[in-house]
Design a protein around this nucleic acid. Sequence first.
DNA 1: CTGTATACCATACTGAAATATGGTTCAAGG
DNA 2: CCTTGAACCATATTTCAGTATGGTATACAG
Lengths: 219, 219
Amino acid sequence: MQTLDLTPAQFKALKCFRSFLEDSGASPTLRELAHEMGYGAVGSAQDVVKALQKKGFLSIPEKHLSRSLRLTEKAEQLLGVAKSAVGDFFQIPKLGSVPAGNPILAIEEKVGTLLISKSLVSKNAKPKKSLSNNLFALAATGDSMIGAGILDGDWLIVESTPEAALGDIVIARIEGDATVKRLAKVKGKWALKPENPDFNLITSPFEIVGRVVALQRVF
Amino acid sequence: MQTLDLTPAQFKALKCFRSFLEDSGASPTLRELAHEMGYGAVGSAQDVVKALQKKGFLSIPEKHLSRSLRLTEKAEQLLGVAKSAVGDFFQIPKLGSVPAGNPILAIEEKVGTLLISKSLVSKNAKPKKSLSNNLFALAATGDSMIGAGILDGDWLIVESTPEAALGDIVIARIEGDATVKRLAKVKGKWALKPENPDFNLITSPFEIVGRVVALQRVF
DNA sequence: CTGTATACCATACTGAAATATGGTTCAAGG
DNA sequence: CCTTGAACCATATTTCAGTATGGTATACAG
């Protein structure tokens, strides 16, 4: 008998369990699992599940509750799958056009949503009650920030805030146009510094829309 | 009457629904929802759910199935929360050291995990059966690729494959050392091109470990 | 004033899910 | 040889979840 390892049937059951979870968003019932496994009887699924419980790959918080089986940490590691933590992600709007006006997110501007891991932003962004409501994504355009490693087409994850520190990369609005630059100070006055020698320092009045907290690029 | 907006009770119910989902990983039953809402009757939860269904915030794929209520896109947008789809994400290992040997992922090398949205990689990576098993993340070190917008400390999401095309940014192994470069061809021979004038073209023998399909940076 | 929707309560019915029990192979170990 | 456990099947029972129905009170629109 093997206590640590799984039998092929048990492993298959775990995979069925996982894929059901991924597809439907909920744990399968024993009958559903039996069906996925090709069983003709519920009892077969019972047996496998019981074995997996004993081996610590499935847990059941309460008895007599439907769909209450859960994959344990152990199982998640083995399967190499993201755990079902809904709370680990933010869904933030992609803005296609310039963030303008207040409130900042007009529906018309929204061109989609971006899913990002909380861990991507939580280190950097200020801890607010509902961070996800203060985040949005903006596609970088132009080459003015190539010195900072920001290329045309990159998705910038922006924390919507008027506060920024010297040296932060910020989204600023200048007469209605949004732009991404590094916040600088020149002769005691705030300025926007491009990271590209072909562009000039901006000293005209601007308003800070938010701080760039993260970046995502797809090659 | 308001058809598009939600009443306070309905909004509260949605939030209860969401938090239950986050906590337990499964949709609440009507009784559980009633309890969360402070109701004394199941019927009350029924009413709210019915209203939310009519307004398009909750959906039910099949009748008489337990815990089958799902938040719709609309509700997820309103709540600003990542949907409960476990399948929308990959959990990929962060490799702290050089990927070496076969199998490529020795446990010792794993320094953590990175959660990424499938949409980040699915456009680019080749459709394989289990993509998540072929992905890993590697921290970029050095400045040899600043011309391609890859900075020191960036997380590179890599698809583990020996196949790459001209111009792809690849992870290559040269005598045990891993490096990120652009795949080039010089005088009919494959070469690794840095994107930094301070570095030299690499023509010595190398082995392609994988293709860089995405990048994440935290500021 | 009347119809309609919200927002609750109460109760009963039905189907589904979990559980219990018992059976049959088959392979491996003592 | 006998026991044990995996891996299936079949069936019955109990509890739970979804549904149906009907009630009350309030608010708002026509």
